Simulated assay, not measured.
Amino acid sequence: MELIATLTDGITLQIVIALLIAGGCIGVLAGIFGVGGGAISVPVFFETFRAMGVTDDVAMPLAVGTSLAMIIPTSILSARTHARKGTVDMGIVKAWILPVLLGVALGSVIARYASPVIFQAVFVLVAGTNAVKLLFGTAGWKLGDTMPGRAGTSAYGAVVGLLSALMGIGGGAISNLILTLNGKDVREAVSTSAAVGVIIAIPGTVGYILAGWGQAGLPPDAVGFVSVLALVLTLPTALLTTRAGVALAHVMPQKLLGRLFGIFLLLVSLRFLAEIFL
């Protein structure tokens, strides 16, 4: 009983309810947008850990690491469901495996030493750019009609891995932006991003566990920069709602799908922008 009391220190009924609701939202987002849900779980986890008394310099990497761990099951479920519908570009997924892993490794090393502002700034830059492109871009917003050659495609993969590790996401926001700028339609970009999320989440989680190992100020339940309690509370509802999200993604008009994703990313960007400057 003493151990349970220690592990749940700082957890209130409001926090439990918030995490359960967040889990459901994460699952829907994972299915609809081909993301692991990190764009919602990172801010939710960040505020939760702060409410538990964790300092900002620990709360932010802890939120990012826990988000990556959360993405493992949701991205696997989302990717498998999208693959059954035949919209995943496995050529890109295979080409990105090694560069994505290298990018994730570098991002995990940076996580041990970076200021919380670095994580938030990367989040705002990538999510905000994607939001503007989806909401205000036209057909002219393209870098090309197809993906570049091997070197360019590998470079894209490394960028996806690095920024995803710093943002605590499955790479959906970044890979969606890259793929749509290089000729992929929104639905195929969403489906392929879901598969890429699997490559990012597993090594990213391991990296954050190692990066946070032995760090001062972590809550009792944390394993490195991953909170076990937060995962236990969010995973059940996330897994229940992921398939529903995938079903919605395949019946929505592509234009509406893109606009909704853009609005969502814009709101998240504004939230972190306020955190940096206020």
Results as ranks from 00 to 15, higher is better:
I276K: 05
P116V: 12
C25G: 15
G161K: 05
A211D: 00
G204M: 06
A131N: 05
V122C: 14
A139T: 15
V226K: 00
V64T: 06
L29S: 01
K184D: 06
M60T: 14
A5Y: 06
G36I: 08
V16P: 04
K133V: 11
L135Q: 10
A83F: 04
L235K: 09
L239Q: 05
L260A: 06
L13A: 12
A131E: 01
L218E: 02
V64D: 02
L231E: 04
G10Q: 07
I11C: 08
M90Q: 15
A151C: 09
A95C: 11
V251K: 13
V124I: 15
M52T: 05
V44H: 03
G137L: 05
L278C: 08
I263G: 13
P73L: 07
A5R: 14
N130G: 15
L260M: 13
A222R: 04
S41E: 01
I202T: 09
F225Y: 15
A51Q: 14
A158G: 15
N182E: 09
L218W: 01
G258N: 08
L179C: 07
S269R: 03
V206T: 04
V93I: 12
G86P: 14
T242V: 13
S41C: 13
V186G: 04
T234H: 12
G161E: 03
A201E: 02
G245S: 10
N182S: 10
V109D: 00
K184T: 07
G107I: 04
P219T: 00
A131S: 07
H82M: 03
A18L: 09
R84Q: 14
A30Y: 02
V206W: 08
V228D: 02
M1D: 11
L166W: 00
V35R: 05
N182H: 12
V104L: 01
K85D: 12
A111R: 00
V198R: 02
G37F: 05
L240K: 03
V132G: 09
I200C: 01
L163A: 12
K94H: 12
S191K: 05
V64W: 02
M147D: 06
L77C: 09
A222Y: 01
A238H: 07
I276F: 09
V251D: 04
I178Y: 14
L218M: 10
L257E: 09
L101G: 11
A216E: 15
K94Q: 07
A59K: 05
